[in-house]
Amino acid sequence: MRIGTARSSYRHDEALFDSRTQYAWLAILGVALLGFPFVADEYWLYLACLVAINIASATGLNILTGYTGLVSLGQAAFMGIGAYTVAAFEQKFGTPVLLNLLAGGFVAMLGGLVVGLPSLRVKGLYLAISTIAASVVLHFVFANWHSVTGGHSGITVAPAEILGISFDTSFRLYWLFVPITIMMVIGAANLFRTRIGRAFIAIRDRDISAEVLGIPLLRYKLLSFGLSSFYAGVAGGMWAYFFRVVTPESFPLLMSIFFLAAIIVGGMGTILGAILGAIFMTMVPEALKLIVGWLPLSTDATLILSPVRTIVFGALIVGFLVFEPLGLQEIWRRIRRFFHLWPFRA
């Protein structure tokens, strides 16, 4: 039941979180995030770092595809740009970690601006195809620009180091990645409280009337591409520090599809959707692996079950699309609504 949340100022009404209950839950989430590394083992910390990276990238793609309506299959390639930039900076200049991550973001942003140029004329599936083309070109560059990318063998990245502390374990990287991801998610949420975010949604919903309302389409579509690939670049940079080796095969087209699937399953055009989608897409294969591991089966049966796992994962995605087209975030909202109204209305 939710009562006593009457708002008395516009600021209060426009806040991201507006009730005491929400603040209480946020506090619990904060404590959980702080406490998690001390109770989790190496495997779960590894997953947590991966989830943080994927949330950052999925949030970026959500700005472009979920909010601005421009379908992109280039997110992994932009992550690649970020990862290579970070690797090259780390290897050649040894600059500070946070600066490298920012540089990764900005270089990826430049890539995104170039790839975004056709978006004024090309829409929908055609734009998706042109972003695939861009990612193929980028893959070629990664594989053949030997002096910077090290060709097919790639670059090995030294562990991130801040103030003499070497971030060489998942436990330490957790303290680097989670705050960065939280900042990026809050940034995206803020974006959609202002005129920039509204302009993006306007372009998605009806680009012609957006133009009459004074929104220059090309500029805002490029801005969306730029922001989205900045997010991808920073996520790619974190990826480089996490896996510590960057090769052209690290960022396949399949990974772009992974992110697109994440925001669709999570719920396009909502901040929570990208978060839930990224968690789902990262964790469910692992959860299925665990479940198969628990089953009392012989080694042969486990071998047979591993493709079954993939099929179950695929079926889950299809199931969500059919039964909840608005994604996981809608399920979340429905649960919230239930408790807001409970016990007055079931």
Binding site: G187, A188, N190, L191, R193, T194, R195, I196, G197, R198, A199, L213, G214, I215, L223, L227
Partner: peptide
């Protein structure tokens, strides 16, 4: 929209 001045950085923070 056209009468507001907020830029991307203002918006993100």
């Amino acid at each position: 929209h056209t009468h507001l001045r907020t830029n991307v950085l203002d918006a993100l923070f």
